[in-house]
Design a protein around this nucleic acid. Structure first.
Lengths: 217, 217, 217, 217
DNA sequence: TATGAATGAGGCTTCATTCAT
DNA sequence: AATGAATGAAGCCTCATTCAT
């Protein structure tokens, strides 16, 4: 009788399996998007790679786009978590911590960051998933607010250049965004693993708005 | 007899018309890509907007991808021209001129720059147009070489931080790339026209590798 | 000991519950077909509305079509009952009673009558349920025979026009059929509740084959 | 040079071929709907039977539903034409002409009439083709008006029973509708070709509202 | 016994490309 | 030389039915 499960235990077990499979779909999609390119991935591919039937995918996601947006949300949430930790450190006296955390989490898996960027363009005006895109935007907006507050304090303390706070974080966002692209751009004689460029850029990101560095052009 | 054209004149005339029509196809494609989004543009749309038949498009371009790659090449060539002028100025004593020229030309029409970035992802592994993609990469490589040389001289003169020269231009590329994305990212409370952010970023781009600013993290 | 049931009582209890659930499935199907339209009803919908699992539906009916055909049979049986009562009355001296009973039972719930008509078309050549369709046809055939006999007697008595008896009941069937459609046809400026049209048509149905009304065209 | 066609002649020729092919699609659809049943006909079937590619169907019709609605409109227009002729005759002194024309045109190809009835149910709430359904309803509404006027005059002349005019034509519609169903209903021992039932019903249809026949039930 | 997750055949539609005129 | 009708591969999604728990 030891292996008998109560009814509620069995239900919980089932839910866990269901969620695991959902994760398998996400993982399979990610692998395929990264290895094949967004265009060349079909729902059939995903199902096959996840080891399930095509129809099963639709038990977890109403449309293909919902898979894509889910990938985006998962990623954005992980960024948020890291950023929040960095902001906390900054508030405790390490001025560069937030920027560093931000750059590090975006450049930790640049291929994923880039995938998310491109998914976003693709989903820009998708009719389904409007709601999830809203969620995404709100997530970012809350990050934005947290950054704005933190930066304002750094400005007040004289650490950062006194420009509108968003200048600082938007410039950081832009640099990170570009750094990610850089890792994949085939035109450049550049392979991210082989040298200190990422550190160089991160250092720029960390210091770029510091007081005294910026002069009106 | 004044309106009689010699055989070679007629041939030249025809070639001119042919080239004009080719440009019309490019222009129509561009307008559509920018207004409708890459996904929603079909060859039929392009032909209609260009005012010609669908079949005629295929007299000018062997595949749809050839149109896309052509847009990329045209754009990259215009960047090259501007950059070359900037480099020349830098060599004549204005240290920031190259960087400034580069940022200005990429941010002059950010929507176009961004389109080209996204086209590049789409064409990443396209079987046709491999050759043209090669051309594109070579164009960039020659720019790279020119930058490398120029930057080395700036380092030698003590203007720029002494790191591998590519650090400087790749960081600039990344920042420009990100600045372009920034203009379109819907999550940010940001509208490029309304403030000095672009100038702020450009200023960072111009000064970011200057000696004394970079400290190993 | 009062709540102890004997084995056979328990079996009977179970059967009763089983039949109740079967009726719940039928009812749920009917509600959905009427409210959503035949096309938009899935087995999943039915199960949900019946408050049971999808798999359970298949314990009661081998295929979806069996549910549909069951609805048809139930309906046809209720018509049969009413018609039999009407025929009995006619035999007892009220000549229009059978026709009236027939029209009344079909027009009592026109939406249901119409649903059955449309189900019939859908099930026309379904491979499964051939047997049940046979049952349906036999039910009707027995009604037909009863009508045929009754009408023949009315003809013999000089009440009805002397044409083949089936002319009378088929014409009545046709008029009833059409009257039902009429209630739902969106093209007509007609709302069944608002006037005496149904009575008018029923009156025609009751009198239409009476002697002296029909003249060869 | 005799087989040389002018430019405009060739364009006209092309248009004719295009329309012919459109008709081939309609014809193929009709044949299939009638022989296989509405459910079992796919766009692929239609294309195959029409001897063209699947994609070509979509050069002529935006969606599958547009084919269906086109069949309905074509049919309704032919009814309209016949009815108009019948009404004209009635106005010229033949009281039953309109009803007879109406019944004859609906019962001339009962299988087609029935198909149209069932298409209508299927297309009831289709999102595309709303416009065409509007056309259909308007076509019927104009028929309705013509009938209303004509019937009112017959009532005024004492030919028809004095009930609201729509009673007359709606009853006729219902009877015709039912008669069509009758031809196909497999439950009845009835084969339309073999006897005078259609005439019997038509005669009822022609005389059913005549003065003196109707008595309140 | 009841369940509902899993399945995959099959439907509709799009669109780059071809080719006869 | 220019055209656009024709094509069909390929994609997304639905849903009746099965079957392990």
């Amino acid at each position: 009788m030891g292996n008998q499960l109560s009814s509620s235990e069995r239900i919980r077990e089932k839910k866990k399996l269901f969620l695991q499979r959902e994760q398998r779909i996400i993982d399979a999609s990610l692998e395929l998007f990264l290895s094949e390119g967004i265009d060349r991935v079909t729902v059939a591919n995903i199902a096959q790679r996840a080891g399930i039937g095509k129809g099963t995918v639709y038990k977890h996601f109403l449309t293909k786009n919902e898979i894509l947006v889910r990938i985006m949300l998962d990623y954005e949430r992980s960024i948020t978590t890291n950023l929040a930790a960095g902001i906390a450190q900054t508030e405790q006296g390490d001025p560069g911590a937030a920027a560093k955390a931000y750059f590090n989490s975006r450049l930790a898996r640049p291929e994923l960051d880039r995938l998310v960027q491109h998914l976003e363009v693709r989903l820009d005006e998708a009719e389904d998933i409007r709601e999830q895109m809203q969620q995404l935007h709100e997530l970012r907006r809350s990050n934005e607010q947290a950054l704005e507050d933190m930066i304002q304090r750094q400005i007040d303390r004289g650490v950062l250049e006194d420009v509108p706070p968003r200048y600082h974080y938007l410039a950081a966002w832009a640099l990170a965004q570009g750094a990610v692209e850089l890792c994949f751009n085939k035109s450049w004689n550049y392979h991210p693993d082989s040298d200190g460029l990422v550190d160089f850029i991160t250092a720029i990101g960390v210091t770029m708005g510091n007081r005294g560095q910026y002069r009106k052009s």
